[in-house]
Design a protein around this nucleic acid. Structure first.
Lengths: 159, 159
DNA sequence: TATTGTTATACTCTATAACTATA
DNA sequence: TATAGTTATAGAGTATAACAATA
């Protein structure tokens, strides 16, 4: 017998909030699936992107900029260091601080992930004209400002 | 010093997938917050809605229809029974089966939750004309069909 | 005393599978 | 044997707070 639960049909009169939430979840899941072959999570991608601007920076600067709790950035960086994508070194100015930056392998991995992200983005936008994509962005921006608790224009960290 | 992490600014060139995902998360969080005063989770709301059509039904029918795993419906119903919103009784035809249905208090609670959901929905749609809401629905429908793994038109359960 | 990075603890969530009582 | 409902267990994920080193 069929044991898989039948999800509710998309009633045309489901609340818009529900439609947005479930579409958002599906999009996030699709992106996570797109990265799965690398063994990395979207958050690792976010960290690598946060490091791409060259200059070595402290872990806390990085975490703060990405909206990642300080206690969580450690594990993410551990994994990236373990894979040889990132290195840590002591700050000469303050020995409490660890400066982190990309290695060449990390730059390559970032390219690879960016390519996968682009494919995922293309999948998301299939069938939407450039104008429709702009319109969707605009409408979601309005919704976001309506519901977000954060200061306006600041998005919660999903990836 | 400021310890709250600064979330990344909504760059206008963030991938659309990210914009959708973070907006979806914010919408879901807003709805959950709207229900918080009742002490119930959006999933309880979904269960009550699933029961509103009167006829008593087995827990598994209900779980299957809502896309909730069988082992999870139990706890949700426990809470609703505890609050006097729902009752369980043995099926006369098959004593393994428990039929569940709304009590009057459950119907009242459902109304209350529906009202809160409506307020949340109004908050989501503030500043959007009816036409824009339709357009947003349409565009998200395209995206959903692009990325969803489920059979088309079937939405994952968020609430 | 305060701060950076780190680790440990405790807590929530959830999926899985075991278990019971019926069929 | 199979099924409905239930419960137990284990694992992932995460937030919080404790901690060591340094300022």
């Amino acid at each position: 017998m069929d044991t898989t639960p039948a999800a509710p049909r998309t009633g045309r009169n489901e609340p818009l909030g529900f439609v947005i939430a479930s579409t958002g979840q599906a999009a996030a899941a699709a992106f996570e699936a797109a990265l799965a072959e690398t063994g990395l999570h979207p958050r690792h991608f976010a960290v690598l992107r946060g490091l791409k601007d060259g200059e070595a920076q402290s872990q806390q600067q990085l975490a703060h900029r990405l909206g990642i709790p300080a206690s969580r950035i450690v594990g993410l960086l551990d994994e990236l260091v373990r894979r040889g994508f990132v290195f840590r070194r002591e700050s000469p100015a303050d020995r409490r601080v660890k400066l982190v930056a990309l290695l060449d392998a990390g730059r390559e991995e970032l390219q690879r992930l960016t390519k996968l992200a682009g494919e995922s983005e293309r999948k998301v936008t299939t069938g939407l004209s450039a104008g429709e994509q702009d319109e969707l962005r605009r409408l979601l921006g309005i919704v976001y400002d309506n519901v977000a608790v954060e200061p306006q224009g600041v998005r919660a960290r999903v990836w």
